[in-house]
Amino acid sequence: MVLSSSQFQILRAAMDRVVPADTDQGAWEAGCGDFLIRLLEDDLVDRELYRSGLDSLDKEANELYQNSFDKLTSDEQDDLLTSVEVGSVFTRWSVFPGLFFRTLVKNTMEGYYGSSRNGGNRDGLAWQMIGFEVTG
């Protein structure tokens, strides 16, 4: 496994804030997790950045909210991620928080809005959502 099961849970929760579910599917349901796991397995993204970044995100949640990241409310998660994005963190991270978050956002978008064949954009629903129609 490229990620531990707890890292996997944090990833899921974080991705679902990057592209939240509403009338249209959220990141996880769209397969962004599968997409990222393939990138990690194929060594196309930095595994240590993810492992360490996800652990740190959870540590940060425990420090600030005494709860693990995936148990926080959506608003709490958004607030925390917004701080991480600008690098304002309270615990010691061994990777740059901003870099980790930008990478997470970029990869989530790549999965969500990219080709279904890569694991994300399940059933082409993201393209349907925005109206990118493939006609030939």
Binding site: V18, D22, D24, L81
Partner: peptide, 15 residues
Amino acid sequence: SWGKAHKDWMRMAYR
């Protein structure tokens, strides 16, 4: 660059 506002924007702006 992320979150609900970004998703809303993509739904509007792409087309």
